[in-house]
């Protein structure tokens, strides 16, 4: 099932994703939308590529194409060495163990007929991972890792807040210890503190297990923190793709420049507030 073209590591690289000239046009009546316009990029193992850009620019379509959900008109999407659009259903299913996804919509992506515990355990059952007890332990570990506790395992997604659903989806995606996780606006529905906790966890997992992330976000500060490389999409095209320092220090494309310029300012700077926080915390602890 391997298709090694374009993924040979003769140059010493080990790409987990190779998007090779992806093209896709949607037709709305007589009108056409070029959702993917010659999209090419690679994501090396153990690194994060952030995909940023205006809504409608094609970020989610790119993600769906990489995941094998959306077939492109032309071009190839190679994940872990396999062309995802050239696999049998069975092969694709096997690849899905290595490639997980967390979507933008917190409510829609969880099966409402199952409990949270069953949702997280589902993938482990499907791929026969571990004994029943080991699975339960893993599920408990995962739910705590996303900042919830075991009391949530018996609940139904309907009984959760948006951010809690989002965290369950993240726990589920990590259950199988995948090699690649595609996160499409996966943390925007979380308060900034829970978000920080999850981002820290994702970074730690990357350090420990060499996970690869395709990280879609519209928050450039989050993209900068998470990603090694950043690709900017505009109307189905990647208009700029560079490492994060270069992108912020020296954005070349006018669209990227505009995007950086439009970041809202006026909030207290994180660092200043943190210093203040430590000071007040000390005062409070002294008071009792």
């Amino acid at each position: 099932m391997t298709d090694n073209d374009g993924t040979t590591s003769s140059d010493g690289t080990d790409p987990v994703i190779v998007a090779d000239d992806l093209q896709l046009t949607f037709h709305h009546g007589k009108q056409e939308t070029k959702a993917l316009d010659h999209v090419s990029f690679r994501v090396e193992r153990g690194t994060t590529l952030a995909l940023v850009g205006q809504s409608g620019s094609g970020k989610s379509t790119t993600a769906r194409t990489i995941l094998g959900i959306q077939k492109p008109d032309a071009g190839r999407a190679i994940v872990c060495g396999s062309d995802v659009h050239d696999l049998s259903q069975r092969e694709l299913r096997l690849l899905r163990q290595k490639m997980q996804v967390v979507l933008q919509d917190p409510f829609g992506q969880l099966n409402r007929r199952h409990t949270v515990g069953r949702i997280i355990e589902g993938a482990l059952i499907a791929f026969n991972r571990g004994s029943r007890r080991e699975r339960r332990e893993r599920v408990a570990e995962l739910i705590r890792a996303v900042g919830l506790d075991e009391s949530y395992l018996g609940r139904n997604p309907r009984e959760l807040s948006g951010g809690q659903c989002q965290r369950v989806a993240i726990a589920r995606a990590l259950a199988l210890q995948p090699e690649l996780v595609v996160l499409d606006e996966a943390v925007s529905a979380l308060d900034v503190s829970v978000r920080a906790q999850i981002l820290n966890m994702l970074v730690q997992l990357q350090k420990d297990f060499g996970l690869t992330y395709l990280f879609i976000t519209h928050d450039l500060a989050v993209a900068r923190y998470m990603a090694h490389d950043i690709a900017v999409m505009h109307r189905g095209r990647i208009v700029e793709h560079s490492d994060r320092d270069t992108l912020f220090a020296n954005p070349k494309d006018p669209y990227t420049q505009g995007l950086i310029a439009s970041i809202p300012v006026g909030l207290p700077r994180g660092a200043a507030v943190r210093a203040e926080f430590d000071r007040r915390l000390e005062l409070q602890l002294e008071d009792g």
């Binding site: 308060d191 900034v192 503190s193 978000r195 920080a196 906790q197 981002l199 820290n200 970074v203 928050d219 450039l220 500060a221 989050v222 900068r224 923190y225 912020f248 970041i263 909030l267 207290p268 700077r269 994180g270 660092a271 507030v273 943190r274 203040e276 926080f277 007040r280 915390l281 409070q284």
Partner: peptide, 26 residues
């Protein structure tokens, strides 16, 4: 309030230091 302070302190900003964990709630 300590919660508000903690919230603002966990914010990702463009000037934040990279390669170290983002501060979270105490």
């Amino acid at each position: 309030h300590p919660y508000t302070l903690g919230l603002l302190g966990s914010l990702c900003t463009l000037d934040m230091e990279l390669d170290r964990p983002i501060p979270t709630m105490p």
